[in-house]
């Protein structure tokens, strides 16, 4: 791969990590969804560039799925949902934004150290892609842990899946079945989550998981 293609791929994967960090400090749900849509767009660009650089046309399909489903359909649907629920103003965080950002930076550093040390033998782009991908995965996990709101947990999970797609497309020649399955799983996951969110709304008039904790079958 020539130097220019490498630089662009590097730039896009790095941007994805940056956008993931941006997700961490969004304190309003609607802003969170907008940033997530942006992240999905960056992912689609990155996948499309991999398709071009690797000469793997099937990856364009993965990019198209990322763009249409994750950057457009899901954010729009979630926007409508939170407006109907009347919770588009706020995001409750279990811990403060300062420590969360620091933890996020720590996770990025960790994944760089781990992956770059482990994959010394692999080619340059693959290993850096992998390091970025692991960062995105870990940041998504962090978000799921720190947020209490069901919608932001879902966003955290989808951001995590974005990291997985980055990893899968970075691994050159990875069988197509996996990419499709990832895209599919997101779709299925969204349907499932959608069903659950609606049921939760019906039952509790709230999507705050803390409200759910009270209903545990046994007291602790």
């Amino acid at each position: 791969m020539d130097k220019f293609a490498f630089d662009v791929a590097h730039f896009l994967a790095g941007s994805l990590v940056l956008v993931s960090l941006m997700l961490l400090y969004q304190d309003r749900l609607s802003a969170l969804l907008n940033v997530f849509a942006f992240q999905a767009m960056v992912l689609a660009l990155s996948v499309a560039w991999q398709a071009y650089a690797q000469g793997a046309p099937h990856l364009y399909l993965t990019a198209a799925i990322a763009l249409s489903v994750k950057a457009i359909i899901i954010p729009v649907a979630l926007h409508r949902m939170i407006r109907r629920l009347g919770i588009h103003r706020e995001v409750e965080t279990a811990i403060n934004i300062g420590p969360t950002m620091l933890a996020g930076l720590g996770l990025v550093a960790l994944s760089m150290v781990v992956i770059l040390r482990v994959t010394a033998a692999a080619d340059m782009l693959a290993r850096e892609d992998l390091a970025f991908a692991l960062s995105v995965v870990l940041l998504g996990l962090l978000m799921m842990v720190t947020r209490r709101n069901a919608v932001s947990q879902v966003v955290g999970f989808m951001s995590l899946e974005n990291g997985l797609i980055l990893a899968a497309t970075g691994a050159k020649g990875m069988p197509f079945v996996v990419e499709i399955s990832v895209a599919f799983s997101v779709l299925i996951a969204f349907i499932v989550i959608g069903i659950f969110l609606f049921r939760i709304r019906e039952r509790f008039d709230s999507v705050d998981l803390e409200a759910l904790d009270d209903f545990r079958g046994e007291s602790r």
């Binding site: 999970f157 995590l160 996951a189 499932v192 659950f196 509790f204 759910l212 209903f215 545990r216």
Partner: peptide, 23 residues
Amino acid sequence: HEALEAAWKYFILGSVGIALALF
């Protein structure tokens, strides 16, 4: 209530597990 909470918890933890396994 309990069934929904259990299913949600299972779904979230199971998905994280399954995502790590994919990585």
